[in-house]
Design a protein around this nucleic acid. Structure first.
Lengths: 118, 118
DNA sequence: AGATGAACATGATGTTCATCA
DNA sequence: TGATGAACATCATGTTCATCT
């Protein structure tokens, strides 16, 4: 079984977990946050990718969903994500696994460069 | 337009160019060489991927194809790849471009780790 | 039997569109 | 009107199969 570099989906889930650790936010904000931080590296995922990743985390039992009115403006409703009871533990484990894959990806990139550039 | 990490296809073409620089080889050997070198990093592309990448290089006008009998054993015919007249120049340019993408990928991985761990 | 490559299948991600409050 | 998400399309890659010597 082949595993090239880490997948975008995994990285998005990683960012989402980190955001949820820090403060409650909703889909559109997650998207804008990632895009503005990573744009300069060419990384700018599409909007549905964020929701797919959020649904993954929900299906994995890591987060709960809660509809909530957006504070300041009119009647706009947003979906807020928080960790489930054991979600934070699961999330920490998941982050560890992703870290291993990130490290492996770095090692692979280094090897590719070493093999092909003097 | 989103560009996450560098694509496997580009990396395979990079290895092929480096192999062709060093010595003439054919498809199956390219595959075995990459797999044996990169297996420990989880990178183990499939056999048709090698041929697709070789056809890319051919379509790009970087290499020529030559049918040749495999030296030692029976009547086995293999396809040998060599640089075209201006192929080596093109290949060097291509390697530079890939190097930029590899560097960008390393930077992005570093940023992801920095953003999400301790 | 080993090498090459076509055809097909799957997976990852993006684009477009609908819905809801 | 902004947020959410479904449906659809495309691209990257893998699996299976055929062919040729």
């Amino acid at each position: 079984m082949n595993q090239f570099l880490i997948k975008q989906r995994a990285v998005i889930k990683l960012y989402l977990i980190t955001f949820i650790e820090k403060k409650k936010m909703y889909g559109t904000q997650f998207l804008e946050e990632i895009q503005s931080q990573c744009n300069q590296y060419g990384f700018s995922p599409s909007q549905p990718e964020i929701y797919k990743a959020l649904h993954d985390l929900y299906k994995d039992g890591i987060v709960t969903r809660k509809n909530q009115l957006k504070g300041d403006e009119g009647f706009q409703e947003v979906v807020i994500y928080q960790f489930t009871n054991d979600g934070y533990e699961k999330a920490k484990l998941y982050k560890q696994q992703i870290k291993a894959d990130l490290d492996r990806s770095q090692d692979l990139l280094r090897k590719i460069i070493k093999d092909n550039y003097r």
